[in-house]
Amino acid sequence: MKSRHLIYAFLLAFVLPSCKGEKKLAQYSEIYRECPATIYVAPLSDMSFRRAVRLTEDSVYNLSLNIAANQLYLTASDPLVNNGYYVPGPLASAQIAATESRSDKQLRNESINDYHTDLGIDAVLFITLHSWRNTTNSWSVEVEYVLRSTHSNSELMHVLVNATKTLPTDFKGNPIPLVEDKAFSDRYGCDLETAQRCRLVETVNKYVLKDLPSGSRTRQQRTERHIKAHPEYFTLKIHPDGSVELAKSEMQQ
C-alpha cells in the first residue's frame, strides 16, 4: 500500500510533466534558437463583425464584443509573464503603440528591427480576432496569434484557433451558466453573455500561450538557482516506510 502510493506520487510529480519535452522542443525550435526575453503584445486587430446601430440591442451587442476583445488583449500577457518573459503592461503598450506610425499590415509583413534597437523588445505578439459566432448555448471565436522576432523578422509562432464553448441547457432550451461565469460576471460587473465571451477568450489565451518555452530570464534563473540557494541547499530522502530524511549537503564546485 505504502509503496504503491510512493509510485503514484513519483509518476505524477516527475514522469508526467516531462512527457511533453521533445514535442515542445520541435514545435518551438525557433523560440529556443532566438531565446527572446522581452515580448511586446501589439494592439489587438479586431476584424470581427459589428452590427450597424439601429436598435439599443445592437449597441449592447457591440459593447459586449468590445469588452471581450479588450479581455482577450489584456489576458494575453498573463501566460507569457508566468513563463518568465518580460511583457510591458497594457498602459505602457498603449504608449508604445501611440508612437507607431505604420499600419498593422505593414508591421506584420515588413521589418520590425527598430523595435529591438529603439525599445529593446525581442519579439512582438500580434493577435487578430477574426470572428465571433454564437447560438443560444454556444459561443465560438476565431483568433490568430503570430509571434515575430525583432532580430530576424521571422515568425517564431503562428497559431490559428477556432474555439467553441458549449453550455448545457435547461428544459426550455436556455443555457445554464456555470458558477465560474457567474463569479466572473459579479466580479467584473458585466452581463452573463459578456462573461461567457470573456472567459472563452481567456481560456484560449491560456491554452495557446501557456505551453511556450520558459523565457530566457527564467532559464537563467534556473541555472543560477543552485548558486543562489547555496546556504540552504539540502537533500530530501523519502524512505519506503514513509519517513522523511532531511540532509544538508555542500554545493559541489
Binding site: 505504502k2 502510493h5 506520487a9 510529480a13 516527475f14 510533466p17 509573464v81 508566468n82 514513509g242
Partner: peptide
C-alpha cells in the same frame, strides 16, 4: 501507514503544483 502514504502523496502533488504564479 496508509494515512502517512496519503500525506506524502498529497504533499508531493502540492509541491509539484507550486510552480509560482505572480501577483496579477
Amino acid at each position: 501507514n496508509v494515512s502517512k502514504g496519503t500525506i506524502i502523496l498529497l504533499a508531493t502533488l502540492l509541491l509539484s503544483a507550486c510552480s509560482g504564479s505572480y501577483v496579477g
